[in-house]
């Protein structure tokens, strides 16, 4: 199924500024990169003395969703694919981000933010394969 969405430039920009602010706070205060797959990965394979701040960040990510839901009455979440594809997608996202050392936040917001060549290559790569995947699903095999 394909759910139409509206272009929302103001809330998009506002949310993006908050994400940039969050990444800056974490680097300035804790000296850490706000890469979600990396922060989560350090909880999946924990090492002593390096889990507290990660857990706190994860609780914060959930708390942000709770605060938004309470303030606005809920989050719009339109799942676009069937159950098995959600599982396949989740597995590949988890595997790929661990193998490639980052996701949209770690490579995109933070890595490109500090002009890391590895992150620029990674972001171009995942943007390309994501676009090709959507094209294949919606315009080649679907519809």
């Amino acid at each position: 199924m394909i759910t139409a969405t509206e272009f929302t430039p103001i809330s998009g920009l506002a949310g993006g500024l908050l994400i940039g602010l969050s990444a800056t706070l974490l680097l300035w205060a804790n000296g850490r990169i706000a890469g979600i797959s990396g922060i989560l990965g350090g909880l999946i394979t924990p090492s002593r003395g390096d889990t507290g701040w990660r857990l706190a960040f994860m609780i914060g990510l959930l708390a942000g969703g709770v605060v938004y839901s309470l303030a606005t009455g809920g989050m719009d979440v339109d799942i676009q694919v069937s159950w098995p594809w959600m599982l396949v997608g989740g597995f590949i996202v988890g595997f790929g981000t661990r193998l490639g050392s980052g996701c949209t936040s770690g490579h995109g917001v933070c890595g490109v933010g500090r002009m890391s060549q590895r992150s620029i290559v990674a972001m171009c790569t995942f943007m390309l394969t994501a676009g090709l995947t959507v094209f294949a699903v919606r315009h080649v095999f679907g519809g």
């Binding site: 979600i36 797959s37 989560l40 990510l61 676009q80 694919v81 594809w85 959600m86 396949v88 997608g89 989740g90 597995f91 590949i92 996202v93 988890g94 595997f95 790929g96 981000t97 661990r98 193998l99 490639g100 050392s101 980052g102 996701c103 949209t104 936040s105 490579h107 590895r118 290559v121 990674a122 972001m123 790569t125 995942f126 943007m127 390309l128 394969t129 994501a130 676009g131 090709l132 995947t133 959507v134 699903v137």
Partner: peptide, 21 residues
């Protein structure tokens, strides 16, 4: 590892529409 990991991530992202955050 970097390039193949990023390529796989993009495929999963494009399938489900979710990245980790």
């Amino acid at each position: 590892r970097l390039v193949s990991g990023a390529a796989l991530f993009g495929i999963g992202w494009g399938l489900a529409g979710y990245c980790p955050g």
